[in-house]
Nucleic acid binder design. Structure first.
Length: 604
DNA sequence: AGCCTTTGACCAGCG
DNA sequence: TCGCTGGTCAAAGGC
C-alpha cells in the first residue's frame, strides 16, 4: 500500500519546483513542449530522432511507414471529428437516460470488438442500442475525477488547484474570468458548435463541474503559451466511434492506403454504422437521486444525486434536456472512498475494495484493473484514494472521467489501482487476471465478457526499472501511467507511455502530457489517450481556456479548452472530456509511430 | 428485501 | 418579514 511515503513521493513527482502557477506553467512548458519528443510524433518523422538514441526497433510494434501520411490524416481526422462526430447519435430514453444520469454522464456505447483484432474476443462493451450501455471512455485522465475526473471526480489537487482559475491574458471566456470573483460554478460553452449534438443523453455534451471547497482561484491560464486557436474553439463532444473503423491500435498490420482512405472517409462522413458512443465521463460511482427540481434559469430540470457510499459527501447535480441529454453535471465534494468495484453495490464494505489494492508501494499493483476512472492510491490506512486527491490534496471532487457503464453493475469500478509501483512480471500476471475488463453488464453477461477479456493476449512486459503510478484506467482499457520520480519529465512520460503499451497491451496513455486532467490543468497541458478501439481520447486541460500548442501535433490536438473554476470547481462540458474518433488505423499508425519514436523503456 | 426514483413539502440563503 | 430560489428531505412506489 502506498502509505504516507508513497504519497509524499507522489507529491514530489507531481510537484513542480515552484509553487507559483506561472512558474509552474513556465517550467512545464519549457520542459514538456519546447522540445517535446512527442512533437516529432506528429511531425515529419523522417527528421525525427529516437529519443535518447534509443532504437525504436525495440518496440514490438511496427513503426514503419505511414508516418507522415498517417499523421496528417490523424490530424485531419481529429479536426474532422471535432466538428462532425457529434452529428451521429442515437437516442436513448428512459432507462438509458437514467443510467446516464446515474453514471454522471451519458450512456456510452462502445463497441470494442475490434480491440486486439487478432483476438477472437469481442468487446464486452458492445452495447445494443437502447440497452443499458455504459460506457467507457476513459481517458488517461480523468478523472473524471475524471471528470474526470475527470478523475475528475476524485481528483484532489493540493496546490495546483488554487491556481487553476488564475488567468491573466488568455482568451478565457467571460465566465472563466468571473470565476475569479465568485465561487459560482459555471460552464464554458463550446463556441464552435452551436448545433447541439445529436447524441443521446450522455453523448451529448454535458458540462461537468467539480465543486470543490478548496481551490482558490487563480486562473491558471498562461497566455504566454503559444496557441493557434482561441481555446474556445476546439471543443468537441465527439463521442461516437465507428466500430468498423476501430481496429486495435495494436494491430500491426499496416493498413493499405485504400483501407486508410476508406476509413478516413468513413470517419469524415461519420457513417457510424453502429455508433460507438462514448460519454464524456462517467464516474463509476454509485449515485442515488434524491431530488429533482426545475431551476429558474435553466430550461432543463436539475436532478440531485448523492454518492451512495456511506459517509461519502459527494453530490452531483445533473441537468438534462427534455430528450434526456445531459447538459450539465456539477460535482460537489470529494469522494471519501475508492471507486466501487464492478458489479458491486455500494453497500459492499469498503474493506472489500482492498482486495484490489496494491500491496506494496514498490510493487505494481494491478490487483484490480477494471475501469478505474481515476487512479487511486492507497492511503496509509490502506484505503485507496484517488491519486489526484492523495497526491495533490485538493478538494477537487467528483469524478470526471469515468466510465460507467451500463447498468448499475457495470463498471462502477475501477478501483483504484494505485499504484505506485514498479512493474514486474508478476504484475503482468495480475493484469492478466484482473485486466482491464470493462465490466459492463450485469450478471452472467458481465462475467462472461470479463472472462473473454481476460483471455486477451498479453504483451510481454519489458523490464521497467521505474516506479509507476497508474493514475487512470479506463473501462476500455485505456490507462495512464505516471512514472516517478520526475513524472513531469516528458521523456519519462514517453517511456511510460510506451511501457504502458507494452505492459498492458491494449492501451496506453500517450500524448504531450500524460497527466491527470487536474494536473494538466495546473500545467496547462492536456492528455491524450488511446483506446483499444482506436479511438483517441482527448483529455482536456481543466485549466482555464488553455490553448495548447504543441509543435508537430495535429491542429486538433493543439487546442483545447477547459475551465478551472474557483475553489476547485471544475466545469467541463462534454467537449471537455471528449473522445475523438479516429480511424483505427490512423490511431494505430500514430501509436506505432509513437512507439517507434519512444525509448524502449522508462529509466529512473 | 434492498435500493432506487419520484415528487411534493420543507428548509435555508438572499435580496 | 416576505418572496424567490435552490437544495434537501422523506414517504410512496417501482424494479
Amino acid at each position: 500500500m502506498a502509505g504516507t511515503n508513497n504519497r509524499g513521493a507522489l507529491m514530489e513527482d507531481w510537484m513542480l519546483p515552484s509553487p507559483s502557477p506561472r512558474t509552474l506553467m513556465s517550467n512545464f512548458w519549457n520542459e514538456e513542449f519546447s522540445s517535446s519528443p512527442f512533437s516529432n510524433i506528429f511531425s515529419d518523422n523522417s527528421s525525427s530522432k529516437p529519443l535518447d538514441g534509443i532504437d525504436k526497433s525495440k518496440t514490438s510494434f511496427d513503426s514503419s511507414g505511414e508516418g507522415t501520411v498517417q499523421e496528417t490524416k490523424a490530424s485531419l481526422l481529429f479536426e474532422s471529428n471535432l466538428f462532425d462526430s457529434n452529428e451521429k447519435s442515437t437516442s436513448h430514453g428512459g432507462l438509458a437516460e437514467r443510467m446516464s444520469a446515474r453514471a454522471g454522464f451519458g450512456v456510452l456505447k462502445i463497441d470494442t470488438s475490434r480491440i486486439n483484432s487478432s483476438a477472437p474476443v469481442r468487446s464486452p462493451v458492445t452495447i445494443p442500442p437502447g440497452v443499458s450501455p455504459r460506457e467507457l471512455l476513459e481517458s488517461p485522465v480523468f478523472l473524471p475525477s475524471a471528470i474526470a475526473q475527470p478523475s475528475p471526480t476524485t481528483g484532489k489537487l493540493p496546490f495546483l488547484m488554487p491556481h487553476n482559475c488564475k488567468s491573466t491574458t488568455s482568451p478565457v471566456p467571460k465566465k472563466a474570468e468571473d470565476c475569479l470573483h465568485d465561487n459560482s460554478a459555471f460552464s464554458f460553452q463550446p463556441l464552435l458548435r452551436s448545433k447541439p449534438p445529436n447524441f443521446s443523453t450522455a453523448e451529448k455534451g454535458a458540462s461537468v463541474v467539480h465543486q470543490n471547497q478548496s481551490s482558490e482561484n487563480d486562473n491558471q491560464q498562461e497566455s504566454s503559451l503559444p496557441s493557434n486557436s482561441t481555446g474556445t474553439e476546439d471543443v468537441t463532444d465527439a463521442n461516437l466511434i465507428k466500430p468498423k473503423t476501430c481496429d486495435s491500435m495494436f494491430d500491426n498490420d499496416n493498413p493499405s492506403p485504400t483501407d486508410e482512405q476508406e476509413e478516413s472517409k468513413e470517419n469524415q462522413n461519420l457513417e457510424y454504422s453502429s455508433a460507438l458512443v462514448i460519454s464524456p465521463a462517467e464516474d463509476g460511482y454509485n449515485w442515488r437521486k434524491y431530488g429533482q427540481k426545475q431551476v429558474k434559469n435553466s430550461e432543463h430540470p436539475r436532478s440531485y444525486y448523492k454518492c451512495t457510499h456511506p459517509d461519502c459527501p459527494v453530490k452531483k447535480k445533473v441537468e438534462r434536456s427534455q430528450d434526456g441529454q445531459i447538459t450539465e453535471i456539477v460535482y460537489k465534494g470529494s469522494h471519501s472512498h475508492p471507486l466501487p468495484p464492478p458489479n458491486r453495490r455500494p453497500s459492499v464494505p469498503l474493506s472489500h475494495f482492498n482486495d484490489f489494492q496494491i500491496d506494496g508501494q514498490e510493487d505494481i499493483c494491478f490487483k484490480h484493473s477494471h475501469n478505474a476512472t481515476s487512479s487511486q492510491g492507497s492511503t496509509p490506512n490502506g484505503h485507496i484514494h484517488d491519486v489526484h486527491s492523495g497526491v495533490l490534496e485538493t478538494k477537487l471532487s467528483g469524478s470526471l472521467i469515468t466510465t460507467d457503464i451500463a447498468d448499475k453493475s457495470v463498471m462502477e469500478s475501477g478501483e483504484a489501482v494505485d499504484v505506485s509501483s514498479t512493474i514486474s512480471s508478476s504484475d503482468k500476471n495480475d493484469r492478466g487476471t484482473h485486466g482491464f475488463i470493462p465490466s459492463t453488464f450485469d450478471g452472467d453477461e458481465t462475467e462472461s465478457k470479463r472472462r473473454k477479456m481476460d483471455v486477451l493476449p498479453q504483451r510481454t512486459l519489458p523490464p521497467v526499472p521505474l516506479t509507476w503510478q497508474l493514475w487512470h484506467q479506463g473501462l476500455s482499457g485505456s490507462l495512464g501511467l505516471l512514472c516517478k520520480p520526475q513524472a513531469s519529465n516528458l521523456h519519462q512520460r514517453s517511456q511510460l507511455a510506451q511501457a504502458s503499451i507494452a505492459q498492458f497491451g491494449n492501451v496506453a496513455a500517450y500524448g504531450s502530457v500524460c497527466l491527470p486532467p487536474q494536473l494538466s490543468a495546473a500545467s496547462g497541458g492536456f492528455c491524450f489517450g488511446m483506446l483499444p478501439s482506436g479511438m483517441a481520447v482527448q483529455v482536456p486541460s481543466h485549466g482555464t481556456a488553455m490553448p495548447v500548442h504543441i509543435p508537430g501535433h495535429p491542429p486538433a490536438m493543439q487546442r483545447y479548452q477547459g475551465l478551472m473554476l474557483p475553489r476547485g470547481e471544475m466545469k467541463v462540458n462534454s467537449q471537455g472530456l471528449s473522445s475523438l474518433p479516429v480511424a483505427t488505423r490512423t490511431a494505430s499508425a500514430i501509436y506505432q509511430q509513437l512507439m517507434g519514436r519512444l525509448p524502449q523503456g522508462p529509466q529512473t
